Computed example of a mutant assay.
Amino acid sequence: MVDRKKLAWLTTLKKEMDSYRPLDESQLAALEQETKLEHVFNSNKIEGNTLSRNETEAIMRGVTVNEKSLKDTLEVVDLSEAYDYMQDLITTKQPLNKTIIRDINRIVTYNTSRDRSNAGAFRAINVRPSSVPLDENPYADAVDVPFKVDELVDWSRENATKLHPVEYAAKLHYKFVTIHPFADGNGRTARLLMNFALAENGYPIVNLKGDEQQRNSYIDALEAGNKDGNMDPFVDYIADKTEETLIQRNEILARNEKNIEEAAKETNLRPKFRDNENDIER
């Protein structure tokens, strides 16, 4: 069973996060850019991208990295744009639908598809993970993919407000991966969908790490339900990662609040210079 105590603890951590004053615009922009970089780097690394974090950051800033795979470079460009698209969906409060799912994948694979018309198109052939026997294939048959995606959207509409936000996000990810609707980009699309679900409920972006050990833990959690469709291990895994993220975010916000309070106390200047709402004469 899903660890309900952990989910309740996540709700408590989120309430703590919401209780802090927000970061100022410059610090918030820096944190958001760092979060985006971590997502693009790690999500691509999970899929085998060989670029380093520094190389990923350079490409995201528009700098050409010499002697690197063109495919790896274009994956960074595509995922960076898909991440921005996800953020736009959150800002405009778009409900999940089939078009959004297609468009996320379309952007994720746009520059690396041999035929761009395949980006966002459902696969026409059957596929399976290389690690499982043919008779235990968890992925949907190609002929069933359109209907399975419709079912996923219906499930989302029914459960988006019923389930705990982290449980909902994890199950959305899991269900999408078991459909595996596209020829390429399913993992990156799934992680964007999960974070879309988390962020629209006020939770921070949860970046799953791409190093070998954590990648294996992630894959193991996904594959735990292959035989019986039990999503609980994966929900618990995402809950643990969300807990780590919330704790880190709360540490940042608590530090920011403490720094502001200390700065207000530690000054010899007259009150005018301690009032953040007044302009300081220069």
Rank of each mutant, 00 (worst) to 15 (best):
M1A: 08
D3N: 14
K6W: 01
L10G: 03
T12M: 09
K14D: 00
S19R: 05
L23A: 01
E25S: 03
F41S: 04
S43W: 08
I46G: 05
N49Q: 09
N49D: 11
S52D: 07
R53L: 12
T56N: 07
G62A: 05
V63K: 12
T64H: 14
V65F: 01
L74P: 07
E81G: 04
Y83D: 09
Y83H: 06
M86K: 08
L96E: 05
I100H: 03
I101M: 06
I101C: 09
R102E: 15
D103N: 15
N105R: 10
I107T: 10
S113P: 04
R114Q: 15
R116Y: 15
F122A: 01
N126C: 08
V127S: 11
P129N: 08
P129D: 09
S131D: 11
P133L: 00
E136G: 01
D141T: 11
F147Y: 07
V149N: 02
V149F: 00
D150F: 10
L152E: 06
D154L: 12
W155V: 12
R157C: 09
R157N: 15
A160V: 15
E167V: 09
E167S: 12
E167Q: 12
Y168P: 03
H180Y: 04
G187A: 05
G187K: 05
R191T: 00
L198D: 06
A199R: 08
E200V: 11
Y203C: 03
N207K: 07
G210D: 00
R215A: 12
N216H: 11
Y218H: 14
G225Q: 14
G225H: 15
N226F: 15
K227A: 13
N230C: 11
D232Q: 14
D236S: 12
D236I: 10
Y237Q: 12
I238A: 00
D240Q: 14
K241D: 00
L246T: 06
L246Q: 02
I247H: 08
N250V: 02
L253S: 03
L253E: 02
E257D: 09
E257F: 03
E257Y: 01
K258Q: 10
N259C: 04
K272I: 15
I280D: 13
E281G: 04
R282A: 02
